[in-house]
Design a protein around this nucleic acid. Structure first.
Length: 488
RNA sequence: GGCGCGUUCGUCUAGGGGUCUAGGACGCUGGCCUCUCACGCCGGUAACACGGGUUCGAAUCCCGUACGCGCUACCA
């Protein structure tokens, strides 16, 4: 029989979700769900000095936005609750006691000053900085007397002297470590909280975690964990260490260069589907050359043996491209619902059909809702006065077109396609009468109505503006030209 | 310094001894389309870190070197 696949995402509550954490959580989700297993969220808040208020709620909130769900978590509970380490202290205490009784852990009374000094000396002698095991040889009776006397202490693991610990990583294969290079890690801190090493082993076992899928930065401490499993007599889970997400300079991705918080991408207008899709492809590749996947499809396609070993640079430009693709695939309704809240009320007050037409007309190439709303606002803006170095023919052209448009039956303004055709013929007729053609016609009208030389197709713009808005722009341009002429 | 991991176009990657004069995507870039910009379409640019092996044959296997990164806390 096969045991149930259970994975976990175990962040410390530092206040925001790192995109690397997202990738880790996503792979855990994909792996678990792809095997009919479960993913759980466990909060590793054993460092009291780094607690951030509201961090857990924030995680839940952002994962909810992403559409990643946890089968067990502090929020929904589960058979192995609580899912917050600070609420599981008695477990770690019991575990430490057990290790101490078996001689696998010992109390250490060294002050942090002494530790610092030892470390400094070792580094000065360019030797590896490791605990010198000063307290390991203390007699049990001595130690217990000092503990009873209330002397501050930590508990360290007694790492075997000359052994080789081998781990069989699902992504990297066999990796081995000599115990001589492994430090006597602190398991229990003097404040009574466990370190990550102890807590994650105790909890992963207690929560029946079958696969530990985490970042590569954990690979060097994995032998410590393996040793702990052995001390406890527990079967260790399978390990899979994911390649790191990198800055453009190939260092571990950090705040230093660009955004690392998922929240930042959300605020920037990146769609959750796009972010998930993009991040999934950082370190993993499907069997074929497809690159667009829904979460569902990812669950189906994902496998650990197609995860790469080398770190991946988080390419902002490609993310932007992918988001643009996702925006392009949105339904008219979805994109309207995304953009409308970002538009000024003055626009929404108007007949929405024209604003919707603007959204539809302007969406090709839009990178996000915010980008598109900006384009809409810009399209509706009225040109300010300036330039107008037109000759008489251009002036007359603008007047002619205004007259022609004014004469259009009202219904025409509600039929955008027909309107474009009418506008084009009006412009061409006027152009022919005034001796203008091609750009002479169009750039003149464009400058008259928008005040800029670049922008959306004119025929569409007048549809967005409607009869009144269009005629106002045309008449306004003529008036401005005439007034500047009289001034001159 | 020690330990560990890694190394295919600028970036994400395909590739698992011959089908590779190394494929796709982003970026960059040339052209087309066009009232302009954008979009779209067509094309181009650019990589197997290096050195030894093994083999008839290596991007693919082995060893070494270099370089990069990670870890080296009473942080995770």
């Amino acid at each position: 029989m096969t045991t149930e696949i259970r994975t976990r995402y175990a962040p410390s509550p530092t206040g925001y979700l790192h995109v690397g954490g997202l990738r880790t959580a996503l792979y855990n989700y994909l792996f678990a769900h792809g095997h009919g297993g479960k993913l759980l969220l466990r909060v590793e808040d054993t460092d009291r000095t780094r607690l951030v208020e509201g961090a857990v709620e924030n995680f839940l909130d952002i994962f909810n936005w992403l559409g990643i769900t946890f089968d067990e978590s502090p929020k929904v509970g589960g058979p192995h609750a609580p899912y917050v380490q600070s609420e599981r202290l008695s477990l770690y205490v019991a575990a430490t006691k057990r290790l101490a009784e078996d001689g696998h852990a010992y109390p250490c009374f060294c002050s942090s000053e002494r530790l610092d000094q030892v470390r400094a000396e070792q580094q000065a002698a360019s030797k590896p900085p490791m605990y010198d095991r000063h307290c390991r040889e203390l007699s049990k009776s001595d130690s217990f007397a000092r503990i009873a006397a209330g002397e501050p202490h930590v508990w360290r693991m007694a790492v075997p002297v000359n052994e080789v610990v081998e781990i069989d990583d699902l992504i990297r294969g066999k990796v081995s470590f000599e115990t001589a290079t492994i430090d006597d890690q602190v398991l229990m801190k003097s404040d009574g909280f466990p370190t990550y090493h102890l807590a994650n082993v105790v909890d992963d076992h207690d929560m029946r975690i079958s696969h530990v899928i985490r970042g590569e930065e954990w690979l060097p401490s994995t032998p410590k964990h393996v040793l702990l499993y052995r001390f406890f007599g527990w079967e260790p889970p399978r390990f899979a260490h994911l390649p790191l997400l990198l800055n453009p300079d190939r260092s571990k991705m950090s705040k230093r260069s660009g955004d690392v918080a998922v929240e930042a991408y959300r605020d920037k207008g990146i769609l959750p589907e796009a972010l998930l899709n993009f991040v999934a492809l950082l370190g993993w590749h499907p069997q074929d050359e497809r690159e667009f996947f829904t979460l569902r499809e990812l669950v189906k396609e994902f496998s650990l043996d197609r995860v790469n070993k080398a770190g991946a640079v988080f390419d902002q430009a490609k993310l932007k491209w992918m988001n643009t693709e996702y925006v392009a695939r949105l339904s008219s309704e979805d994109i309207w619902n995304g953009v409308a809240p970002l538009l000024p009320e003055s626009l929404l007050d108007e007949a929405n059909s024209r604003v919707r037409y603007a959204v539809e007309s302007l969406r090709p190439g839009a990178e996000s809702y915010a980008d598109l709303s900006g384009k809409v606002v810009e399209a509706f803006s009225v040109p300010d006065d300036k330039l107008d170095a037109w000759d008489d023919a251009q002036l007359a052209l603008v007047g002619d077109v205004a007259d022609a448009l004014a004469a259009l039956p009202a219904a025409q303004w509600n039929d955008f396609e027909a309107l474009i055709a009418s506008f084009k013929s009006a412009a061409n007729v006027a152009g022919a009468n005034r001796g203008l053609k091609g750009k002479g016609i169009w750039m003149t009208l464009r400058m008259a109505m928008t005040g800029r030389e670049h922008g959306p197709e004119l025929g569409r713009l007048i549809g967005m503006w409607g009869r009144e808005g269009t005629l106002n722009r045309l008449h306004g341009a003529v008036a401005k030209r005439l007034s500047s002429e009289s001034r001159a």
